[in-house]
Design a protein around this nucleic acid. Sequence first.
DNA 1: GAATATGATGTAATGGATTACATTACCTTA
DNA 2: TAAGGTAATGTAATCCATTACATCATATTC
Lengths: 330, 330
Amino acid sequence: MNIQDVAREAGVSVATVSRVINHNEKVSTNTKNKVLKAIDKLQYTPNLLGRNLRKKRTYKVLVLVPTLSNEFYSEIVRGVEDVANEENYYVMVCSTHSNKEKEKAYLNMFYNHLIDGIIFTAPEMSGDAMIDIANNYPVIQCSEYIKNTDVSWVSIDNHQASIDAIQYLIDIGHREIAIIGSENGFVSSIKRKQGYLDTLKQNNIQINNDYIIQSDYEFQDGIDGCKKLLNLSKPPTAIFCGSDAIAVGVIRQLTKQGIVVGKDISVIGFDDTHLAAYYNPPITTVSQPRYDMGKVAMELLLRKINNINCKNEYITLDHKLTIRESTLAK
Amino acid sequence: MNIQDVAREAGVSVATVSRVINHNEKVSTNTKNKVLKAIDKLQYTPNLLGRNLRKKRTYKVLVLVPTLSNEFYSEIVRGVEDVANEENYYVMVCSTHSNKEKEKAYLNMFYNHLIDGIIFTAPEMSGDAMIDIANNYPVIQCSEYIKNTDVSWVSIDNHQASIDAIQYLIDIGHREIAIIGSENGFVSSIKRKQGYLDTLKQNNIQINNDYIIQSDYEFQDGIDGCKKLLNLSKPPTAIFCGSDAIAVGVIRQLTKQGIVVGKDISVIGFDDTHLAAYYNPPITTVSQPRYDMGKVAMELLLRKINNINCKNEYITLDHKLTIRESTLAK
DNA sequence: GAATATGATGTAATGGATTACATTACCTTA
DNA sequence: TAAGGTAATGTAATCCATTACATCATATTC
C-alpha cells in the first residue's frame, strides 16, 4: 500500500497526496479532505525509505558512546533525544566498546547514507581522521574530544574542575593527595592531571610521582590503583578519581582493608552518577551537566546538518563540586 | 556518485556492477576486476536507501529498553549486537523511559519501513496490542514479557529464581523475610512474589503482609521500602530485592541507620550487575544470563524476519544465585 | 552442422516518495 | 474582451540500487 493507492482512492494525483502529507503547498480544502479521508480509510503511512531517498535526508543521527551501561552517557543521550524529537529526528545510540574498529564501522553509515550526523562522546580515532570526517559530514564531539582538532565540541572545563576538587581537599587539610585515572587517552584525563599538578604547585606541595596513577575509568582500575597506593611506604590521605566508577573501586578496596573512607581517608569521584549518590558511603564528586551537554551537542549538530559550512563552536558548560560523606576534614 | 558512475567508469552496465557488489550471480573474472577497480578508484559505497527501498528490507532492528543507564539492558544489547553484526544487521537501541506513548511512537518505525524487527525488553503496551503487532511484524520479548500473550519470549524462570533465593535465606537461618519490588507490572515481579509465597509456605512460615512491599526497581524504591520495613514493630532479618538497584538503596538506608548488612541483616539483590559486585558490602544476587538472552532473542528475531509465519517460541535460560557478603548465616 | 544448453551481460521495470515543470481554470485589470 | 496573473492540480523525472527478462556468444550434444 503506497501513495499511488491513496491517490487512486482519493481520485487525485500522487503529487497532490504528497502535498497534503507534507502540508507545505496550497491544496484546496475540498481536495485535502478527500485525501485525508483516503489516508484514513487505507490506514496509509508513508514509506520513509522512499522519502529519504528522494530527499537525501534520513532524519536520523547517531550517538556513539563507549559503553551503554554508564549513566553518564545515558543522560547525554536523553538531552540529545529531547532536542532531536523536537525536530522529528530519530536518535540511534550505538556502543563502540572503546574499539577503534567498531567506531570506524559506524562511519560507514555516513557513506551508506543511513544517517545525517554523528555525536561522538569519546572518539577513538586520530585527530586527522576526525578532521577528515568533519570536513565531509556533520559531526560534533560531546564530553570527550580530540585535542588540537578544530571540530566542534561541548564539554566542561576539566582543568578547572580538577583544580576545584584538589583545592577543596587541600582546604580541608590534605597534603598527601593521589590521582587515579590520568592520561588514559581522553583529553579530560590530561586536563585533570594538569589541574592536579597546578593546584599542588600553587599550594607549595611537593609532587610525588607515586601518587599519580595512570588508568582507565572503570571499577577495576580503582581497585588496582588503590592497592598500589596502599603499598607505598607513605600512602596518601586523599584520592582524586577520574570517574565515579574508579572511586567505587577505590572505596571498595579501602573498606576491604579496614580503612574507613571519610575518616581515615578522603575520596573524590567524577561525574556525579547515581553510583556516587547511593554508594556506601555517598561519594563526593564533580557534577557534570550531562543532560545539557547532550542538548547543546544536538543543537550544534542540527545547525551543521542544515548548513554544512557553518563554523565550528567550542562550548564549555559549568561543573560543580558535590560534597558528600567520602571526604571529611582531617 | 552512484552505481551509474561506477558502471560508466568500468564500461559495463549497472546490473553487472550490482552483481559484483552482491557477489551472488556469475560474473567473469575479467569484468569483475574492472568493476572492482572502478569501485576502488571512485571510492564508491552503495546508497543503502536505494537498496533497502528496492529490497524492502532495512537490515535494522530496534531494541527497546526502559532505560539506557542500566547495565542489565546493556548486556542484553551486547548479545543482540553480536548476533546482528554477524548477519549484517544494524542495532538501534532506544529508550522508552518506561513510557507507553514513547513506546508507541517507536512502533511507527514499522509502519514507516524503517526497521525490520523489534526486541522488547520491558514492553509497556497491553497484551492485545502486543498480539496485534506480533501478527503483523517480527517482534520478540526479551527478559520481561506480557503474560498470557502468545508472543515469543526469552527469559529466566523467575518463579524458580525466587524460590532459590528465599530457600537459601531460610537455609542460613532466616524466618522473617521481606520482599521489595513485587507487582510493579512486570511479569518478573509477579512470578518472584509467587516464588516467595510458595517457599515460605513450603517451609511452614507464616506470611506477613507487612513484609511484602510493592515497588519499582529503582534505588529510591529500596530506600523507601527499607524505611517502611524498619518502622515495623518486628522488622525482618532478611530482605529479598527485585533488583540490584533496590538492594543498593536498602543497604544504603540500613547502613545510614547503623544496621550492619551481612551481620545484623541479610540482603539479596537481583540481576548481578557490577553494582552488586562492587558495592560495599558486595551483594548476594541472582545472576541472569543477560548476554545470552540477548543473543537468543536476536536469533529468534532473525528467524521471524526471514519467515514471518514461523511459530512462537518460549525460551527459558538458566539463572544462578551468586553469594557474596550481604547475606550471612544468622 | 543443427539444435540446444549455458554463461555473461545488458535493458528496462521496479520499489515509493518528492518536486520541477506543465497545464488548466478562473479571476483581474486595462 | 484580450492579456496576464494566480491558484489548484497533474505529468513525468528523479533519487539509487536490484532484478526479471532479453540478448548474444560460446559450448555441448546428437
